[in-house]
Computed example of a mutant assay.
Amino acid sequence: MENLEMLFQSFETGIRSAKATKPKEYLKNIGLDYAELRIGFNSGQFHHNRDQEFKDRFEALGMLKKSDAGVRDDTMTPYTAFGRYGLIFPLVDKENRIVNYFALRFKLETPKEEYLNSEGIYPTYPNTLTKRLYIAPTVIDCASLMQSKTLENREAVIALHNGELLPQHLEAIKALHELEEIIIIKR
């Protein structure tokens, strides 16, 4: 998933862009700070002016889907990007490699949350010495708890995936040999 790592770096650069005023404003409104958390912004244009091999790699990952939108040049294939004009949060595997994205498309009439796939954990697999684990219902709830700085030493938080506890969550929990308490946060 090396391509997701590289792409997320471009999303992190995107959120820091002077042009990214709307994503920064939205983050401020929901109380999250991209300087403290790993958050990126996908303008939906990462594939523009790239060769077909690049586009094929990201189509295989689900980041691009062929579209029937009209284009000026009939020789071009139009694409729709996953999480277009959205805030992007990375999900990681046990080796801390980005294997999935959570997108919050905030500019729609009703904000839409979506995952690229069903892999990974947000924000990361908990340290094996974790004593207290918080399980948050969403990535946004998880990010809010992390940013609140209320977690103490040997405490961790993970987000459910669309409200579900997936096999990778159970695997991560079973690896916590000093776990004393699990706190499930409900909305």
Rank of each mutant, 00 (worst) to 15 (best):
N49R: 12
N42I: 12
I98Y: 00
N96S: 09
I140T: 06
P78I: 05
R132K: 15
Y115S: 01
L108D: 03
Y134P: 10
S144D: 05
C142G: 04
Q52P: 12
G70L: 14
K66S: 13
I140R: 03
I140G: 06
E113G: 09
D93Y: 08
F58P: 09
V139D: 10
F46L: 06
T128Y: 15
F58I: 02
G120Y: 01
T75G: 08
L129Y: 15
Y122I: 10
S144P: 07
R132Y: 02
F89K: 00
V71W: 06
N100D: 10
E95T: 09
I88L: 04
Y122H: 06
V71F: 00
L108M: 11
T128R: 15
E53S: 15
I135Q: 09
I39F: 13
D141A: 13
A81S: 14
P137I: 12
Y134G: 07
V99D: 02
Y125T: 03
Q52G: 10
Y134N: 06
D68L: 10
R72T: 14
E36W: 10
T128D: 15
L129F: 15
Y79W: 04
K94D: 13
A103D: 04
P123L: 04
D51A: 01
N96W: 02
P111R: 00
V71M: 11
K94V: 12
R50F: 08
I98H: 02
P126K: 06
D74R: 13
E113S: 04
R97M: 11
I88T: 01
G86L: 07
K55E: 13
A143E: 05
L145D: 04
T128A: 15
L133R: 06
K66R: 13
D51T: 07
V92D: 00
L145A: 01
Y79A: 02
L145K: 00
S67M: 05
D56V: 11
R132T: 14
L129N: 15
Y134S: 08
Y122S: 00
A143G: 09
F89Y: 12
Y125D: 12
P78K: 09
S67Q: 05
E59N: 07
A60F: 11
H47R: 12
K107Q: 10
D68W: 12
G83S: 01
T75C: 05
K107T: 05
N96L: 07
A60Y: 13
R57I: 10
L91W: 08
E113W: 01
C142V: 08
Q52Y: 12
K65W: 13
N49Q: 06
G120E: 07
Y85G: 13
E109N: 06
I98D: 00
T130F: 05
Y125H: 12
Y134R: 06
M76W: 11
M63L: 02
Y125E: 04
T80E: 04
K66W: 02
E113Q: 04
Q52A: 15
Y85T: 15
G120A: 02
Y79T: 06
Y125V: 06
L87I: 10
R38A: 15
N42W: 00
R72C: 06
E114G: 01
I98W: 12
D141P: 04
R84K: 13
H48Y: 13
F102I: 09
P111N: 02
F54S: 03
R72K: 14
E95C: 00
